[in-house]
Nucleic acid binder design. Structure first.
Lengths: 256, 256
DNA sequence: ATGTCTTTGTGAACGCGTGCACAAAGATGG
DNA sequence: CCATCTTTGTGCACGCGTTCACAAAGACAT
């Protein structure tokens, strides 16, 4: 029973499967590159290769958006860029606040890919009074006290949390209370939010641990290629510089 | 056919499902917190709440590792911490190199969660000669020329790429050639690697776009509560500052 | 206009992951 | 030693996502 906050399965969103939504930005990026090279059309095979996915998967993904291709030819690059942009809601401007301007927060503020596609850093917020007024990435940092006002004034619905773990839930609560309904969390904590609020997590530590698991497995398998017990310690302590384990590249699944 | 590099489905790793592996770090974090509070045992229900997952899922996850619980009581915290650590390969030390010491790379270098669990920053590498020798997070930055030597000398098998998109593939190739078999990629590019090399991607831009999609959908649904076709362009230009769409929190899926 | 060739769009099969619901296991109290 | 109560471990069913394989659709040449 506890607090009663449990996760829900990831509701399919208006007909478009969640997995497809997660790939649309990938397609969009590849298409944008093609667009900049003035490539007029592209086949599912080519685009799939550029996006690093299966061509059948790509076609099925696009089929959820509608029939935007021409058989025997492929997809019109410009048209598809527009359609996906519209589907992702990138035709409008999304003001974003970043809370917690430490090393990471500052790095995010400076990240160019932000403004590139419909996102605009509306404000940088930090709890340290000493930070207030200091410009980071050309924007003056504001104090946490003004959080609610900033959200309201700018109509912010997307918040980025880059605070220490201890402060994350508290910041999250305030963001949500102020009207934010989508949160990107960089703090290593499980955030609890009411229904209707989306949380996505980015966690360096978890990613590394998953890599370590596979890394260990590769080493273990190679070491276990002898019949049973020919002291394998050999390479164990030395460099594990073997390559080509029997494993492809692995998707990174991150529950919020 | 193209280059022939296509993605593979994410092979189940030695019996333990990939989805389970991705959750183990989550459990481990929750367990570590309990351990620090000297909590001796914990039930699947409690631990699941702390990790933000379903208790049945948690029990099934643990069942892949073995029967480490006691019926009627729960799980021994310390014992479970050890077992999961061992399973993830965190009982050994993983030297890691970070390539690309810009804003993000520096932030990663300073990230405390790094050293906390088995990971050690062996070197910071940057292509800018002006950076060479400069200390970041207490470590002197080294030039890209020394990449291969560093990898070899330290037995590095995990590399973090925090370079601009344009340099990522090239850096990746060098890392792999030098013996790295696991890569955490922060650059917004699709990396192509040989079989046996794991790539996990962290992409701020993609995460934001996924959030934007759901955000738009929430707004659209609220606005679409009229019958059928009352010119919807209305809200498009204005700020979408409504809250509480009928949607729970959404998992973040990130194919490499 | 007709045939050929390319590429899309999708029906169907399969496999993985999730959640339910319950039997088995052990603790605990009398 | 037996009864009861708690909590684990798991068999089972269901749904989502992926992949295959092919028919339909259109371009293009003749």
């Amino acid at each position: 029973m506890a607090t009663g906050r449990t996760h829900r399965p990831a509701t399919r969103s208006r007909g478009i499967p969640e997995a497809t939504v997660a790939r649309l930005p990938l397609y969009l990026r590849a298409l944008t590159a093609l667009s900049e090279r003035s490539v007029p059309t592209v086949s599912s095979e080519e685009l799939a290769a550029a996006a690093g996915v299966n061509s059948a998967k790509l076609r099925k993904d696009f089929s959820y958006l509608g029939s935007y291709g021409t058989r025997g030819v492929g997809y019109d690059v410009e048209y598809l860029v527009y359609q996906i942009s519209r589907e992702l809601g990138l035709t409008q401007d999304w003001p974003v606040v970043i809370v917690g301007i430490g090393n990471l927060g500052a790095a995010l503020a400076n990240y160019g890919g932000f403004a590139s596609r419909g996102f605009r850093v509306a404000a940088l917020i930090d709890a340290d009074p000493a930070m207030a007024g200091k410009p980071v990435a050309g924007i003056a940092v504001q104090h946490t006290d003004e959080l609610e006002q900033i959200i309201a004034d700018n109509g912010v619905s997307i918040g980025v949390i880059a605070t220490p773990a201890g402060a994350a839930q508290q910041v999250c609560d305030r963001l949500v209370a102020a009207g934010v309904t989508s949160i990107l969390n960089f703090a290593p904590t499980v955030l609890t939010v009411p229904d209707g609020v989306d949380v996505r997590k980015v966690d360096l530590s978890i990613e590394l641990q998953i890599l370590a698991f596979h890394e260990q497995r590769k080493a273990g398998e190679d070491a276990a290629h002898d019949g049973g017990r020919t002291a394998p310690a050999v390479r164990a302590a030395t460099v594990a510089a073997d390559r080509k384990g029997p494993d492809g590249d692995v998707p990174a699944v991150m529950p919020a």
